[in-house]
Computed example of a mutant assay.
Amino acid sequence: MTLLLCERSTPEGLLVSVCDADVLGETFDNGDVSLTVEPEFYDGETASHEEVTASLADAAVANLVGHEAVGLAVEHGFVAEANVLEFEETVHAQYLRL
Results as ranks from 00 to 15, higher is better:
S48A: 07
G25F: 04
D43T: 00
T53D: 10
D32N: 09
V16G: 04
V65F: 01
E26P: 05
A57D: 13
A60L: 02
D22L: 01
V70F: 01
L4Q: 12
A82F: 09
E7D: 05
Y95D: 08
N83E: 13
Q94V: 15
D43C: 03
A57M: 07
Y42E: 02
L5Y: 01
E45H: 00
Y95V: 15
E81I: 04
F78W: 00
T90V: 10
L14V: 08
L15Q: 14
T90L: 01
F87A: 10
S48P: 06
V23R: 00
L5A: 02
D29C: 07
V61W: 13
F28Q: 04
G77I: 00
L4R: 11
N63R: 10
F78S: 06
A69F: 06
G44K: 01
E26V: 04
L15V: 00
H49P: 13
T46N: 08
L4G: 03
N83I: 02
A62V: 04
A54Q: 12
L24F: 05
L3Y: 03
F41L: 12
T2Q: 11
G25P: 00
H92M: 05
M1H: 14
T53R: 15
P39Y: 11
N63I: 03
V65C: 06
H49E: 15
G31S: 09
A62P: 01
V16F: 07
T36Y: 09
L64W: 05
S17H: 12
V61I: 14
T36N: 05
A54Y: 09
E86M: 00
A54T: 02
D29M: 12
G77T: 03
